[in-house]
Each structure stands twice: as C-alpha cells, then as structure tokens.
Amino acid sequence: MTTALTPGHHRADIAVIGGSGFYSFFGDDAESIRIDTPYGPTSGPITVGDVAGRPVAFLPRHGVAHEHAPHTLPYRANMWALRTIGVQRVFAPCAVGSLVPEFGPGTVVVPDQLVDRTAGRVQTYFDKGGVHVEFADPYCGDLRDAALQDGVVDGGTMVVVEGPRFSTRAESQWFARQGWTLVNMTGHPEAVLARELELCYTPIALVTDLDAGIEAGQGVRAVDVFAEFQKNIEPLKALVRGAIGSALMGPCESCRVHNGVELPIELP
C-alpha cells in the first residue's frame, strides 16, 4: 500500500539508503510512502518497517530496478524526504572499489573521511546566504560506532568520482598514492546534504572489486561488481540490522551544525 504524506508527518527516526544491489529491506507487508519534495520525487519508494523495535525507513538509492545512474540521482529530494518523515539518522550501505590490496572483495569498511572528485552535481540546499556547514569530519561518530560490528574495518578515505564510468588505471594509481583507500560514485553530495539537514550519516562500504590500479592486467566490470554485491547482500543486511539496534536514540548534538545560524530556507 502506498500512502501520500504531508510534510512533518513522523514515520521513522532512522533510515537506510540501499546502494547498488540493495533494493529492498522489508517484506511485502511494509508500508510504502510517497513524499512530495521541493526537489522532485525521490529515486524510489520509501518503505517503513520495524527493525530491533524501531520504525525504520528504507530508500533504494538507485530505484527498485536501478533506474538512476550515480550522476543523475535526485540526492536533494532523497535526503529532504527522509527528514520530512522524521528521520534523524541515516545508514548508507554502498558498493566501493578498493585502492589497497588488503581490502579485498567482501570486506566491509566504515570510512571516516571523504574526498570529492565529482563535477557538476548540485551539492547544497543553500543557494543564497552565508551558510557554510562544518564538514571536517563528514560522518557522524556515534553512527560510525554503531556500524562497527564484528569484522568491520574501522576507518578509511573514500574518494567519490563522477561516474558512471570506472576509473582509468592512472586515476586509480593516483588515488592510491594520495593514501585514499576506497572509490565510490554516490557518497557525495549525499553526505554533505545530510549534514546540511542536520542528519547523522555514515556509509557502510562493501568492497566489490580491486580498482584498476591495484593489479596490472585487471580492470573493473559492472557485471562483476553486481555479482559480488549480490553474494554478500544477506550478511550486509544483517550487519545493517545490527547497526540499527546499536544506534543511539534521540538527537545528536554533534551533527547540529546550524545553531545560531539564520538559514535562508526552512528545513522540513
């Protein structure tokens, strides 16, 4: 069943945004919600279910049939809609390539830093006024702690590229020389939009491949990326459920970045 909600209607305080291959999280009995936003429709339906006794919203980042490419995703609509239904915390599972051989396929990493190498993506809600959000540490520390379940790698720098193509070997080697460890196509502007909305946010990165610069003679193929993600999807979902159960309740003061700032728009 799909329900249209008006802004301010509370439905869930925590959300999961599913990446490539992560298109559903609940059974057929989950409620589907349609949210109208000033930035158009979301990339897919928002479903709401129960995890660890908490109401949780799920949004497939690319749509239920992977309709949206990384550079065309409605990032602003997605994050706005989640806040509209009361979400305060966002776990963002995603597929990543590894820039270091020790993070092989199947490794799950909770990065602590981000490098933006995208081009042309709208990355703010504030098109006027002097609003400059703090972003030195792009991910919520409390939410990262909740995501660090057994076997998960703590820390790493995720470089976000424009896509939809994969990196050249030279680009991949350059990223690795900078000390960056993961490469991804959707982590920006998602993270900064979450910060502008004062949402706690952390990615949970599943390594699907070694990027092109790791080993000569090898490159990245989309079919292999999807196959690796599918192979690990159930353990990843279990990990996300565990993270939800460990996440703190209530507002997070460290992610309230607008205290004392007059905003040019009213947040939902």
Score class of each variant (00 low, 15 high):
residue 172 S to N: 04
residue 56 V to S: 05
residue 227 A to E: 07
residue 162 E to A: 11
residue 219 G to E: 15
residue 133 V to K: 02
residue 43 S to M: 07
residue 53 G to Y: 13
residue 151 G to M: 07
residue 139 Y to I: 05
residue 32 S to M: 06
residue 225 V to G: 04
residue 96 V to Q: 00
residue 244 I to E: 12
residue 251 P to Y: 14
residue 4 A to K: 10
residue 45 P to H: 09
residue 101 P to Q: 07
residue 114 L to P: 00
residue 98 S to A: 07
residue 237 K to Y: 04
residue 2 T to F: 06
residue 112 D to N: 10
residue 258 H to L: 02
residue 18 G to M: 14
residue 29 D to K: 09
residue 139 Y to N: 06
residue 228 E to S: 07
residue 259 N to L: 14
residue 43 S to N: 07
residue 180 W to H: 03
residue 112 D to M: 12
residue 200 C to K: 11
residue 225 V to Q: 06
residue 5 L to E: 07
residue 191 A to F: 10
residue 30 A to N: 07
residue 229 F to R: 02
residue 194 A to H: 00
residue 126 F to S: 11
residue 159 V to L: 07
residue 172 S to R: 00
residue 19 G to A: 05
residue 111 P to F: 08
residue 94 C to P: 13
residue 175 F to S: 03
residue 41 P to H: 12
residue 255 C to R: 06
residue 224 D to K: 10
residue 29 D to G: 13
residue 204 I to A: 08
residue 42 T to P: 14
residue 205 A to V: 00
residue 46 I to Q: 00
residue 13 D to V: 15
residue 6 T to E: 15
residue 164 P to C: 06
residue 206 L to Y: 06
residue 61 R to F: 13
residue 133 V to W: 02
residue 127 D to T: 13
residue 192 V to C: 08
residue 241 R to N: 13
residue 8 G to T: 02
residue 190 E to K: 02
residue 196 E to K: 11
residue 107 T to K: 02
residue 139 Y to S: 03
residue 117 R to W: 10
residue 233 I to A: 06
residue 25 F to L: 14
residue 109 V to T: 06
residue 43 S to F: 10
residue 43 S to K: 02
residue 82 L to A: 06
residue 260 G to D: 01
residue 255 C to W: 08
residue 168 T to Q: 05
residue 9 H to F: 11
residue 50 D to N: 10
residue 122 V to M: 14
residue 263 L to C: 05
residue 220 V to P: 00
residue 55 P to D: 15
residue 178 Q to E: 14
residue 262 E to T: 02
residue 263 L to Q: 01
residue 34 R to N: 11
residue 6 T to H: 12
residue 239 L to Y: 03
residue 5 L to G: 01
residue 186 T to E: 11
residue 209 D to R: 01
residue 136 A to P: 01
residue 105 P to Y: 08
residue 26 F to V: 09
residue 251 P to G: 13
residue 55 P to H: 12
residue 91 F to C: 09
residue 129 G to M: 00
residue 23 Y to D: 11
residue 143 L to P: 01
residue 47 T to I: 03
residue 55 P to Y: 13
residue 146 A to T: 12
residue 193 L to M: 12
residue 233 I to N: 02
residue 209 D to G: 06
residue 26 F to N: 05
residue 252 C to F: 10
residue 63 G to A: 14
residue 250 G to W: 10
residue 100 V to C: 08
residue 266 E to I: 14
residue 166 F to A: 07
residue 69 A to H: 14
residue 71 H to N: 08
residue 187 G to C: 15
residue 85 I to W: 02
residue 8 G to C: 03
residue 175 F to E: 08
residue 11 R to P: 00
residue 200 C to W: 13
residue 228 E to C: 07
residue 163 G to R: 02
residue 40 G to L: 06
residue 5 L to Y: 04
residue 36 D to I: 08
residue 139 Y to C: 06
residue 49 G to K: 02
residue 211 D to Y: 04
residue 65 A to P: 03
residue 233 I to D: 05
residue 146 A to F: 09
residue 65 A to I: 07
residue 100 V to E: 14
residue 97 G to E: 04
residue 80 W to H: 14
residue 94 C to G: 15
residue 195 R to Q: 10
residue 140 C to V: 07
residue 157 T to G: 11
residue 231 K to T: 02
residue 95 A to M: 13
residue 233 I to M: 06
residue 33 I to K: 06
residue 145 D to W: 04
residue 245 G to W: 03
residue 6 T to V: 15
residue 58 F to Q: 05
residue 111 P to I: 13
residue 10 H to D: 15
residue 157 T to F: 10
residue 8 G to S: 04
residue 233 I to S: 04
residue 134 E to T: 10
residue 76 R to M: 11
residue 109 V to W: 07
residue 67 E to V: 08
residue 223 V to R: 08
